[in-house]
Design a protein around this nucleic acid. Structure first.
Length: 583
RNA sequence: GGGGUAGUAGUUCAGUUGGUUAGAACGCCGGCCUGUCAAGCCGGAGGUCGCGGGUUCGAGUCCCGUCUAUCCCGCCA
């Protein structure tokens, strides 16, 4: 017996008088004695079905929400006053002739209709139920459409989808690895990939020319609302390309994805240097949906009577509209936020009628006030926030204040998408703790050709061929042109303070591979989850993943991670030490 | 590792300066109801106040510890 001829979202007035079969979940029941209305639901929609014979009403009275039923009946038109405009199928209803209960549902531990009606802890435990929710299904569908569009586009552009190993060798740099013990090789471990970086470069060496993969990656670090321990990358790599070639294909891909998935035209892909991004926005992930840039205030604060700033390495300022919004309470909250980020405090004054008021305004005389307003083009009715500290601190903290203010003033419009390329990253950063240079991107990133001479002599000044694409403050993708010269690659590892022995133990196979004819190549990796977050207009990565983990990397439904049997541990040669506290 | 917020009925929440039998809504169970669409009306059941300890004549409420979730800092090449 066919369980359905149509789904619950497709019937309309063109089907009137047809006999149809539907199956789905009971979304709601409205009992009126001799007539019962049921909204029957599946992934595709809801259809109102009607029970009005004694026999059917007897069954109907036993039904409860989320029972799964089959019905056969006749599509009937609704009179004008009975049409439900909120339903795709609202012009019709189905008069049931036959009904079979396929599966009874016990009372649910949570609401299907309203996600907010349960705590997230609870929803994650019953995630299979939450996944019945329409909003969450929409996100899953956006994710599917995104992946599908990416596959089609890249395949059309001669990229090959090739899988890479999930059990690989642990590499020392970067995030903490998830490790997998080997049974066959006792005491040895695989690592789960943080990304397929080396494999995809090896594909270029193999002459596969263009590769992509939609692939799970794993990083054992503490989580945030936009980070999961396992996440998905759209990973791609191309041979015989420079930065511009990669940027171009990425722009085409993103344009196509935004158009096909949410019908948005992306037009501009401005390019901002890392240096300018930090100077103007205090971050390498600037949200360009709204203005407000960081300016230098040191020369002005030096002329003022405010001595707390006089010994600071730098003093920076942002000017924010709507000063009346910033009550003492809100300013105090921003001040504690700034302090929690490591600033000594957040200085402020308001600008009204060409005068400063509040905060530290009394330290500025009228001449200086005029000079500041003219030079920084301060608008009337604005409020300025200043931080004096080390350069990095004042920029970073003001960058976060800028973002927070954008939230408070609702300047972040989710229907606007502002992509921006961030380029010209430094190749290395000095790590004060370990007293050595770290890669800003990863150790395979090529330096700019013009900086090749400085690589060993003056590492901290070298600029890389790296690029990130940032949309609305989220780093959506990052990549680089790679090193294709094996001796340069060795030099880079040496600058990072790896000995010859370490280099050969950890990267020997890769350095070797570079010797046998390596094309210039480069690529990029997208965070698929973050991209889908943007497309779906949500701010939480768990809302775009079917079965996400909590902030402590637990799976609440199946309760992973968990203990394993002594036998399993014995086979692996693993002994669990007592908790530190009990030792 | 550090800081903020939360944990009370199946679910979401309220619960005053510590004081009688811990309340509401939705859901659930029973009844009425032929045009509802988050149906309505009447009645009912349902609680180890996250867990452990302490203060007190008396703790949901105060104190200490702990667990879980979440947001942020560190961390995430």
């Amino acid at each position: 017996m066919a369980l359905r001829t149509h789904n619950c979202g497709e019937l309309n007035k063109n089907h009137i008088d047809q006999t149809v079969k539907l199956s789905g979940w009971v979304n709601s029941i409205r009992t009126h004695g001799q007539i019962i209305f049921i909204d029957l639901r599946d992934r595709f929609g809801k259809t109102q079905i009607i029970l009005n014979s004694d026999e059917l009403i007897k069954i109907g009275k036993t039904l409860s929400n989320e029972d799964v039923v089959f019905i056969e009946g006749k599509v009937s038109s609704r009179s004008k006053d009975l049409i439900n405009p909120d339903l795709e199928t609202g012009e019709i209803e189905v008069l049931v002739k036959k009904m079979i209960v396929l599966s009874n549902a016990e009372p649910l531990p949570m609401s299907i209709q309203d996600r907010d009606a349960s705590s997230e802890e609870h929803r994650l435990k019953y995630r299979y139920l939450e996944l019945r929710n329409n909003d969450l299904q929409k996100n899953i569908i956006i994710r599917h459409n995104t992946a599908q569009t990416v596959r089609n586009f890249l395949s059309d552009n001669k990229f090959l989808e090739i899988e890479t190993p999930v059990l690989m060798k642990s590499t020392p740099e970067g995030a903490r690895d998830y490790l997998v013990p080997s049974r066959v090789h006792n005491g040895r471990f695989y690592a789960l990939p943080q990304s397929p970086q080396m494999y995809k470069q090896l594909f270029m060496i193999s002459g596969l020319d263009r590769y992509f993969q939609i692939v799970k990656c794993f990083r054992d670090e503490d989580l945030r609302s936009d980070r999961q321990p396992e996440f998905t990358q759209i990973d791609l790599e191309m041979s015989f390309v420079d930065e511009k070639d990669v940027r171009l294909i990425v722009e085409k891909l993103l344009t196509k994805v935004f158009k096909e998935v949410i019908n948005i035209e992306l037009k501009e892909f401005p390019i901002l240097s890392y240096h300018d991004a930090i100077e103007k926005y205090g971050t390498d992930k600037p949200d360009l949906r709204f203005g407000i840039t960081i300016e230098d205030f040191k020369t002005f604060s030096n002329k003022s009577g405010f001595k707390a700033f006089s010994d600071c390495e730098s003093v920076r300022i942002i000017s924010v509209p709507n000063s009346e919004f910033f009550s003492r309470k809100i300013i105090d909250e921003l001040d504690s936020y700034a302090q929690s980020l490591g600033a000594k405090g957040l200085a402020w004054f308001k600008v009204n009628n060409n005068e400063f008021s509040g905060g530290i305004s009394k330290f500025f005389d009228s001449n200086l006030t005029k000079e500041i307003i003219d030079n920084l083009k301060l608008e009337d009715n604005s409020i300025c926030f200043m931080i004096g500290d080390k350069l990095n601190t004042s920029l970073q903290v003001l960058g976060k204040i800028r973002s927070k203010v954008g939230d408070l003033l609702e300047l972040k419009d989710n229907s606007i998408f502002s992509p921006v390329w961030i380029v010209d990253f430094p190749l290395f950063s000095w790590n004060e703790e370990t007293k050595r240079y770290d890669s800003v991107n990863h150790p395979f990133t090529a330096p700019k050709d013009s900086d090749l001479g400085d690589v060993t002599s003056n590492p901290s000044e070298v600029i890389s061929k790296g690029y990130d694409i940032v949309i609305n403050g989220y780093e959506v993708a990052g990549g680089s042109i790679r090193i294709h010269d094996h001796s340069l690659q060795k030099d880079i590892f040496k600058i990072m303070d790896l000995s010859d022995k370490e280099i050969s133990e950890k990267f020997g196979f890769f350095i070797d591979a570079l010797k046998y004819g390596t094309p210039p190549h480069g690529g990029i990796a997208f965070g698929l989850d973050r991209l889908v977050m943007l497309l779906a207009g949500v701010s939480n990565i768990r809302d775009v993943i079917a079965f996400p983990k909590t902030t402590s990397a637990s799976a609440l439904m199946e309760e992973a991670p968990n203990l394993v049997s002594e036998e399993q541990l014995d086979e692996l040669g693993i002994k669990i030490l007592d908790d530190e506290k009990n030792v």
